[in-house]
Design a protein around this nucleic acid. Structure first.
Lengths: 226, 226
DNA sequence: ATTATCTATAGATCTATAGATAATGC
DNA sequence: ATTATCTATAGATCTATAGATAATGC
């Protein structure tokens, strides 16, 4: 029975995570979640007496714990080599559903109480930002990369990894692994030629759609281009 | 009177843009917007008979038109030099309120009708994505940068510029101009040393907070770091 | 007559609470 | 007795519509 409780609550969190992360805190109702679970909206209060906000918070904390584990493990797996570490983190994020990290930390969090807002920000920071930042600091210490504000580096990388998942659905886009590899190469090698030679990119092999929109439909993007 | 109508409707759009972009389509009610304007919720239907969705759409299109102008002008101002062009675009975005582009194109757009969804995606693409992508293609054609999928390059840059505005409120963060310059340098020069020399970064001058959270409060970020 | 607002309200949700019910464990 | 659900519903919004009102332009 103890086991049952756990499974059931975890299933609620699974659905909540998928829906909240996909459409945002305000857009999702408890009924949406309950419907997907085949239960009634009021039944969710058995698992989360604090209601919607408590459910969202529990979902977010569980998610951050998971990502913390994934990021820390990935960083540990490529020790002494930043590129290998970043590849590992990229693989981790590719294995997870998009979290829309910043979208959540901004729009969704605004709907929470002041206390929970701060709590979640701290959690997110400790879970993903801090370990990644430390990896950049260590790489700089080893003389592997130049000095740049480590918060900026960690933020850019996390941000880009999260961003890759948005583009995933586009038709004609290079596969995610190729994009991640190129993003890492862009950060480390840069786009300018090195020693007069161009570093090859994986995504360069994919054909560029004539005028790739989000889908391939007629263009009505912009008329009044002055 | 004609003039009056225009001003009044534009003021509605101003407030709608600020609120929608800040907290998302679902989180903002027509009452929120009307209150801020000092009018009644029902009065908004005079300006936008189609209601909330029409108001959001009009707001987004006006915003994209503005950004199209800003991006195109910035790109034209630094012709034949990608770094100058990107600096110009970065300055443009710094002069504008954060648009939370992707957050909007994903979560908010999901609440719209299928038709408007597509319409907005096309608009956003034509307004900002396409001109930027073409600048990357041209730079590659000039031999300035290596070949990489231009959609990826344009997406990364836009994404990073949008991301910079999120971090802006953090205490102790380097000023936005320094961050933008470093992000551009990271993309073009890379983090690895060039010809044995480290390219200097502006943000490297800013002190790294001992354990910079979003604010400087006690750490409760992560306990169970296995 | 037109413009730009307002008041009032119908109808549809949404969150949260109270209490019933069925199944399982002691 | 406990667990996990359900039904029913109060109370609070939210969107949208109908129609009144005051100010301005012809």
């Amino acid at each position: 029975m103890e086991q049952e409780v756990r499974d059931s609550t975890q299933r609620v969190l699974d659905v909540a995570e998928r829906l909240f992360m996909d459409r945002g805190y305000s857009a999702i109702t408890l009924r949406d979640i309950a419907d997907e679970l085949g239960m009634k909206q009021a039944s969710l209060y058995y698992h989360f007496p604090g209601g919607k906000e408590q459910l969202f918070l529990a979902m977010a904390e569980r998610m951050f714990d998971r990502h913390h584990q994934g990021v820390v493990d990935a960083l540990a797996g490529g020790e002494e080599d930043l590129r290998a570490q970043l590849r590992g983190v990229a693989e981790w994020f590719a294995s997870q559903r998009p979290m829309k990290f910043m979208g959540m930390m901004h729009a969704d969090v605004a709907a929470l109480s002041e206390e929970h807002k701060e709590q979640l920000a701290q959690k997110a920071h400790g879970a993903m930002f801090r370990p990644l930042r430390e990896a950049f600091v260590a790489a700089e210490g080893r003389g592997e990369i130049r000095a740049m504000h480590p918060d900026l580096l960690a933020g850019c990388f996390l941000w880009l990894m999260d961003g890759l998942s948005y583009g995933e659905t586009r038709t004609g886009a290079p596969p995610r692994a190729a994009m991640a590899e190129d993003v890492i190469s862009m950060m480390l090698d840069g786009l300018l030629p090195r020693d007069g030679v161009f570093v090859p990119a994986m995504s360069a092999m994919w054909p560029v759609a004539a005028d790739a929109g989000l889908v391939d439909s007629g263009r009505n993007g912009q008329g009044r281009s002055s």
